[in-house]
Design a protein around this nucleic acid. Structure first.
Lengths: 243, 243
DNA sequence: CGTAAAATTGATCTGTCTCAACGTGGGTGG
DNA sequence: CCACCCACGTTGAGACAGATCAATTTTACG
């Protein structure tokens, strides 16, 4: 439960004991945020970086017609806005989906982090994986039919939550609403509902009361054309290169 | 025509004369690549960074069904794969759409670039803008009907090509195929054709023989819900912050 | 000039949306 | 601790944007 960030970053770069200690201390003053609350809004200039410890948050934009589109999920261990040091204004908002525990990490803390080579490299890795994920989502939404699209999302979350130890066998907590899924996939909530029923009917998943069970992981992955290489999880660099 | 990269980066960070000289020299040994040719493929481990000087290239993935999806356009002045130093394997391919002039910049050249604070900052800015563009595309594909979707793309290209001086008034060369547009927008080539006709009928654009004229920029932007803030062009930082 | 790539047109089909109810479970105030 | 209530999930019927299939015309170019 503790040290999710460490756990996640270690997936990529080997960290020293001191690195680990440093990261563990980051999570010190955390706060609770209720569901459906904005952490930062489009147009704001961010002052610090947020780290999610518990719960699901998301990046989103609101369209002129008032509809929300979700562009990324932030799950425990995820860090937002390393951008802080470069871009002046947020071009999108970040809000919680479920109740969350978050930490606000001030700028100078981040600068200290970036001075530790292993952490810095792992942080860039994480930023690049976020970008790769965006590309995969683009393909997912652009090209796959609704059923595969939703299946793909469930597979991705399985992998991501696994890296922070939030998966029990083949099951994880999914504290979001069907309407959230709809706003993520560019679908209607009505259609998401039917799609989930069809995934259940195919005996691929069991979903109820915020708990997802993937009945047959290999089958769901195959069905959803899920190829995890975009998550770059197998690149546990033993070499420390320059950042 | 020369120094597109300089021109682009200056949009964000003020560069010294020496910075400019440095960037100008980068483009030295350039090569021509014919249309529809891969520059690098999914699975490859990149050795150097590519810079596009002329023509259009794109990032793409091929789906199991054999269909290609384009996830980004690379236009003159665009740099690919700063990732080189972090990620081991390409999770997507890059290929030319039209004939292109490109430069291959070796690793050590890049390291030298990153040692120049102004250039380094501008480079990170550019990477973050690429990511923001991906998010905007996600919304575009996920939520907007075909006509607006295509209009949005044309507006974005107008802005991006403007920053490198490739726009004449309100017109620019668009050396890509309707089928390329289809593969970018998650639409059918047949439907893209009809959409373009409708945009012409609305008197928003004139398009023929690789040349696009936007008849009424304000109208097209409004119609396409185009808000350029995600390109972060107005942030000509006069301050040099730490990277 | 000939030929292949690109653009265009027409007819039909379908996945997803829209609108409109209705069911349900878990939290909260009385 | 029960009853109410509201957010969430579910179901049905009908409409439509965009897909598919299949030609045909136009353009670029060797």
């Amino acid at each position: 439960m503790t040290d999710l960030l460490t756990r996640k970053l270690e997936n990529f770069a080997p960290l020293s004991g001191e690195d680990r200690r440093f990261l563990a201390e980051l999570a010190r003053p955390s706060r609770l945020v209720r569901a459906r609350t904005d952490l930062i809004r489009e147009g704001d200039r961010p002052n610090d970086v947020r780290l999610v410890l518990e719960g699901f948050a998301c990046r989103y934009k609101i369209l002129p017609a008032g509809k929300r589109h979700i562009m990324a999920y932030l799950v425990p261990g995820d860090l937002c806005d390393l951008h802080v040091f470069i871009l002046k204004k947020m071009d999108h908002s970040i809000g919680t989906l479920s109740a969350c525990r978050v930490v606000d990490i001030p700028r100078n803390r981040i600068l200290e982090m970036l001075e530790r080579p292993a952490i810095a490299q792992a942080l860039w890795w994480s930023a690049l994986v976020d970008e790769a994920t965006l590309r995969e989502w683009l393909v997912n939404i652009g090209r796959r039919p609704a059923e595969r699209r939703v299946g793909h999302l469930l597979c991705e979350l399985l992998m991501r939550l696994q890296t922070v130890g939030l998966v029990n066998g083949t099951s994880y907590e999914l504290p979001i609403t069907q309407s959230d899924v709809a706003e993520t996939m560019g679908l209607t909530l009505v259609h998401v509902n039917r799609v989930l029923q069809r995934l259940r009917a195919r005996n691929l998943i069991t979903l109820g009361s915020r708990q997802l069970v993937i009945n047959d992981v290999a089958a769901l992955k195959a069905f959803s054309e899920f190829d995890p290489n975009y998550l770059h999880l197998d690149e546990n660099a033993k070499t420390l290169e320059r950042c």
